[in-house]
Design a protein around this nucleic acid. Structure first.
Lengths: 263, 263
DNA sequence: GAGTGGTCTAGACCACTGT
DNA sequence: CAGTGGTCTAGACCACTCC
């Protein structure tokens, strides 16, 4: 037999999908639901936690539980990489006018708030292996948070660059110059680097406690974790970035062009 | 102040990472941990649930709790699409020798067990929109489960093809002919279709109860959900497939090749 | 202050695994 | 059978929101 909380999950999911509880409406309080259904509050709470994790409801401490409006996921495409590279040779004015993230989100550059934090760190083992350097090598670590006014950040990322590579341009070590017009590819261009290809590796997992706080995630939602590795035209790894994205608000889009059979 | 279960999560995570509880060892029983730490069993249980969701431990009902061995994620690359297309013109013998999934997993074709189930369905709204057809249009729905001997499936997928497209080759309607040598791209080739590009859309969420059962997922792990849309050289959508992958055992790899600045 | 969701306790009972 | 993890209860208390 299914557990009680599974039965409550099914019951409430049905009510949401059949319109008994339309999007945007408030659900009865946990105590009221428990009394109506005839199970304890704890069982109802566990069921609500599952529905929240699926993204069907929002629970707000002290206010109530609400059926979620249809969410509009932010798309992140790989065309942003191609687009960013092409813009490296544009004027500073043009580069400053919009960035890759605004482009994906359909926003203007002044809609986005942007926090950056720089530090010099020694390469941990996994990054040292990726960059093919020793673990004592210094890296420039840059931490970013991107959000819209009054909203939770939808993107927390950490970028690593070999310090000896970027040291050729002292402006790159200055976090107050962010957001840099043209993005990382233009920053790398100022030290003579042309990026040849970018590899995204994607996994999913539940967020850590600090990520829940940073992204203001509802309990139980999963995060997409993207490791982006940039390789220049000489085959050298020039940047590694770890991007954490809320799984319920993000859609990653990758297009694979296949070669034609006949020319 | 952090909650008690958060503090227990941190404590146990530290013990796992610093080698107090090495990979493969068994953790003390919940009651023993609770007594040692001084919190109730319920608090310890909630902490263990979070660590399980992160993939750090396995809890087995009636046996105990174990530190997980370093997991080896199955990679899924987009090169599989290019590779599968190139092989369409290979001999049947060669096509039958190995498939894209075996190639990604580093396995032989006889290592993999493969279940297929076919049905003819009317297009639901989202698929009708993607295929640009009406909702009454018939689709061939094909459900697959892939697993290795004695192991849980690592892949549950549902593929949709327009029925009028594939009806030109009756063999394509016969599920007993799976696994089809050369995969879907070869199946489409038999009805005159050349695939031009494939778009992957990736999100993450917690699994539904039926997915937990099908993939034998530990409680709390997230799934990667991939919608794969294949477009032929005339711009027509010829296949839509939804693939559900366990987030803790899967890594999706996407490479973006950037055009050179100078030719 | 009333009403909401969040944490924690103490304990009963059940389901599964091994001996 | 003993020992493990899983479910469920009854209730205390806390934190947050709104009036």
């Amino acid at each position: 037999m299914a557990t009680k909380y599974d039965r409550v999950v099914d019951l409430l999911r049905t009510r949401i999908e059949d319109g008994t509880y339309p999007a945007g409406t408030r659900l009865p309080a946990e105590t009221a639901l428990a009394e109506e259904i005839g199970f304890t509050v704890q069982v109802v709470r566990r069921a609500l936690s599952e529905l929240q994790a699926e993204g069907l409801i929002d629970r707000i401490h002290g206010r109530g539980t609400w059926v979620r409006q249809q969410r509009r996921p932010v798309e992140r495409t790989t065309e942003r990489y191609v687009w960013e590279k092409q813009r490296v040779h544009a004027s500073e004015e043009e580069r400053a006018s919009t960035g890759a993230t605004e482009r994906d989100a359909g926003l203007e550059v002044h809609d986005l708030l942007f926090e950056a934090e720089y530090a010099e760190v020694e390469a941990p083992a996994d990054l040292a292996a990726t960059f093919e350097v020793s673990t004592s090598t210094k890296l420039l670590r840059r931490t970013y948070r991107t959000r819209t006014h009054g909203d939770a950040p939808f993107n927390v990322s950490t970028s690593y660059l070999p310090l000896d590579l970027v040291a050729a341009n002292p402006a790159l070590l200055d976090s107050t110059r962010e957001p840099w017009p043209g993005g990382t590819q233009h920053q790398l261009f100022t030290v003579g680097v042309e990026v040849d290809r970018i590899i995204d590796k994607v996994t999913a997992r539940p967020p850590r406690a600090d990520e829940v706080a940073a992204l203001d995630l509802p309990a139980g939602v999963a995060v997409l974790v993207l490791r982006k590795v940039s390789i220049d035209i000489t085959g050298r790894v020039v940047e590694v970035a770890d991007v954490v994205l809320p799984g319920d608000r993000t859609q990653l889009v990758y297009t694979t062009q296949l070669p034609r059979w006949s020319a």
